[in-house]
Design a binder for these strands. Structure first.
Lengths: 193, 193
DNA sequence: GAATGAACAACTAGCCAAAGTGTTCAGTCG
DNA sequence: CGACTGAACACTTTGGCTAGTTGTTCATTC
């Protein structure tokens, strides 16, 4: 097993454990035990406990993003692409219980603005994906000529907003209906008239 | 001075003090001192410290809402109305420093979903205002036939999102550009084609 | 080079007393 | 008679202490 794979195994075990007990309550021995190694060894893969936490969360986010990117690339029509991007990105958390639990315990993971907080680079990559879809739409004259940069950041914020509403604060009338209204508004707002 | 006015005086003094020191650090004697009365007397106007805090914040919110409502009613064209509603509601915080400081110290005041958390009734009233503008637009055939309830909740969430981005986490590229993109997208998404 | 495990440092939990603050209420004031 | 006071009371917070736990380092082993 190469260093690459070992790192992934460690990050996944760490995520699982943090998800179960929360950051404060998990000890490095919990994680090391889960992996059949000693806690000292973890320091070869992360500089401290916090760093291990952030690395494991960032890893889960990158996986998430790759899945969405694959699904988006499977479609060619830009409107379909946009819709798939929305729906898949939104649905992913529901199948990753560890990440869900992490987010629930630590809502500050998500910041409405992409360029702040931890996970800067993951967020920037997400905004990049949105931008590319927007640019395709404009190039093909399906979308209006909007300010791509600002619009992408705005759409990203809407996305995070739904994540927060759906998983961090679950309550109120079905989020699904509002999600539908949102996608409807966004697509109609983008299309040329 | 009637009971009504006295209550307002107390709520305003409370807000000012909470804004200066934060909830934990302000004592009831701070507030009572500001008003030239003793702390025991405050209990005739609120059932406890927390209640006093929430009442004072709710009062500021209602003022805010009334101002926006006035400005909106001054316009007749529904697109202008919509835009004025967005801009004024967004701008108000910048002129109320006390409320700004409160929100900064206690970001959980704003929840993205209107029906949860404290200040339920204030939020519901805001959603109601949005609904009425939407209904006018649809009635006049300027807006598409959207699900008014869901759309209003969605728009409200966008609004809160901007409040949070602008005042709670100030950073990143100018929020103004993104705000413009947002209003642009919303209006275009609503208009009939 | 990867991993260990003992040693060390830093933090946390529990406890206590003292001080501060929120809450109540019998009594005063206008 | 209602608005208000001020002292009494109860609850929470603070700081200082100790013991125990947990994060971090590193010389040594595999």
């Amino acid at each position: 097993m190469g260093r690459q794979e070992k790192t992934i195994r460690i990050l996944e075990a760490a995520l699982r454990t943090f998800a179960r007990y929360g950051f404060k309550k998990t000890t490095l021995e919990d994680i090391a035990g889960e992996l059949g190694m000693t806690k000292g060894n973890l320091y070869l893969y992360a500089k401290d406990k916090r760093d291990l936490y952030e690395k494991s969360v960032a890893h889960a986010f990158r996986e998430w993003q790759e899945r969405v990117a694959e699904d988006v690339e499977g479609k060619k029509d830009v409107v379909v692409r946009f819709r798939v991007m929305c729906v898949k990105a939104y649905a992913y958390l529901s199948v990753n219980e560890d990440l869900q639990s992490i987010v629930l315990r630590d809502p500050t993971i998500f910041t409405l603005a992409p360029r702040e907080g931890r996970f800067y680079s993951v967020n920037v990559a997400a905004v990049e994906m949105i931008k590319q879809v927007l640019e395709q739409g404009i190039r093909e004259k399906r979308f209006r000529q909007v300010d791509v940069e600002s619009m992408a950041e705005f759409l990203f914020s809407i996305y995070i907003m739904f994540i927060i509403r759906a998983y961090v604060k679950s309550e109120g009338k079905p989020v699904e209906a509002i999600f539908e209204a949102a996608v409807d508004l966004m697509i109609n707002g983008l299309l040329t008239r």
